[in-house]
């Protein structure tokens, strides 16, 4: 899995060189933010069910499932995706906080998802709605420190940007 550290070492090795000063600066930056990331990861991990449910509820509220009579393929409005997907993306965001890079989202959440959603004509606005809600819901210092919130929100933005 890619992280800032593995990326720096892999590209240095590919070129047969030592990591450059800018490589080391990026690693240093990642390490300096590690405490904030770990705080966010711990808080998110401890509240994953509540966070995912709130986000899920927000997207269902936005796109309510109307009880039209009928079967799949024929009724007009449905909730699009369920709690499962939201929780999955939240878990990947937590992994990214631990890793200090977007590798888990890139490799397990985004790479093939965009193609699958497009091929199956699955709607992406519910994801955007749920993840946007989570981004706007977090509050410092009530939920976590300002630095930890910044790290968390950056990954939510990354997920919104990559899935949309």
């Amino acid at each position: 899995m890619k992280s800032v550290i593995t990326t720096v070492v892999t590209s240095a090795d590919a070129a047969g060189r030592f990591p450059s000063s800018s490589d080391l600066e990026s690693v240093q930056g990642s390490i300096q933010r590690a405490a904030a990331r770990m705080e966010a990861a711990e808080k998110l991990g401890g509240n994953i069910d509540a966070v995912a449910k709130e986000a899920y509820d927000a997207c269902i509220k936005k796109y309510p499932y109307l009880n039209d009579a009928g079967e799949a393929n024929s009724t007009d409005t449905f909730k699009a995706k369920c709690h499962r997907d939201i929780k999955h993306y939240m878990r990947l965001i937590q992994y990214c906080l631990v890793v200090g890079g977007t590798g888990p989202l890139d490799e397990w959440g985004i790479a093939g998802s965009r193609e699958v959603y497009r091929a199956l004509n699955l709607p992406t606005p519910p994801y955007v709605e749920a993840l946007s809600f989570a981004r706007n819901r977090g509050c410092a210092p009530r939920d976590l420190s300002a630095q930890a919130l910044t790290e968390y929100n950056a990954l939510l933005d990354y997920a919104i940007n990559s899935l949309s």
Binding site: Y63, N73, D76, T77, F78, K79, A80, L120, N121, P123
Partner: peptide
């Protein structure tokens, strides 16, 4: 084309 979700937005 799978259009199961085509009217979910009601717009």
């Amino acid at each position: 084309m799978d259009n199961r979700f085509s009217n979910m937005f009601g717009l």
